[in-house]
Amino acid sequence: MSEGGLLGVAIGARRVCLTRQGDAVTALDDRCPHAEFSLSAGELLADGSVECAWHGARFDRATGAVLQGPACDPVPVYDVLLLDGDVHVRLDP
């Protein structure tokens, strides 16, 4: 995954959007709660937020909080562990 990029991956039946800024990798649900569009098709902005390509909703990549509508609900985020160059995502708490 490139610096400042988004990558959609399938983990079982779930789609996850990975983000990378510098050495920090985060994972959030790859589904905008506003209209079910893939967040990985959007953009990781310079401020660290993820913008949905369809209607422009923006989310904090670390917390999933809504930063800009039209979405009203946050995006679920998942724990990430970087181990020997691999990204491990824990889907369940």
Rank of each mutant, 00 (worst) to 15 (best):
S2A: 13
E3L: 11
G4M: 07
L7Q: 15
L7F: 09
G8Y: 09
G8R: 05
V9R: 15
V9H: 08
A10Y: 05
A10T: 08
A13Y: 10
A13D: 15
R14G: 01
R15G: 03
R15Y: 01
T19K: 07
T19Q: 02
T19M: 03
T19H: 04
Q21T: 12
Q21W: 00
Q21Y: 00
G22T: 03
D23P: 06
D23H: 13
A24H: 07
A24N: 02
V25K: 06
V25Q: 06
V25E: 07
V25F: 08
L28R: 01
L28V: 01
D29N: 04
D29K: 01
R31K: 07
C32H: 10
P33M: 11
P33Q: 09
P33R: 10
A35F: 02
A35N: 12
S40G: 07
A41M: 14
A41E: 15
A41T: 11
A41Y: 13
G42N: 13
G42W: 13
L44W: 10
L44P: 10
L45G: 04
L45Y: 05
L45W: 06
A46Q: 14
A46Y: 02
D47F: 12
D47N: 15
D47P: 11
D47C: 13
S49W: 09
V50Q: 06
V50S: 06
V50T: 05
V50I: 10
A53G: 14
A53T: 01
W54T: 07
H55R: 08
G56P: 06
A57T: 14
F59Q: 06
D60I: 05
D60A: 14
R61V: 03
R61S: 15
R61I: 03
A62F: 01
G64D: 10
G64Y: 07
G64K: 09
A65V: 01
A65S: 13
A65I: 02
A65C: 08
V66L: 03
V66M: 02
V66A: 02
L67Y: 03
G69E: 11
G69N: 08
P70I: 11
A71H: 02
C72A: 08
D73P: 00
V75K: 05
P76V: 04
P76I: 05
V77E: 03
Y78H: 14
D79F: 00
D79H: 02
L81F: 00
L81G: 00
L81K: 08
L82S: 00
L82T: 06
L82W: 00
L83E: 15
G85S: 10
H88M: 12
H88W: 15
H88K: 13
H88C: 11
V89A: 03
V89R: 01
R90T: 06
L91Y: 08
D92S: 13
D92P: 00
P93A: 15
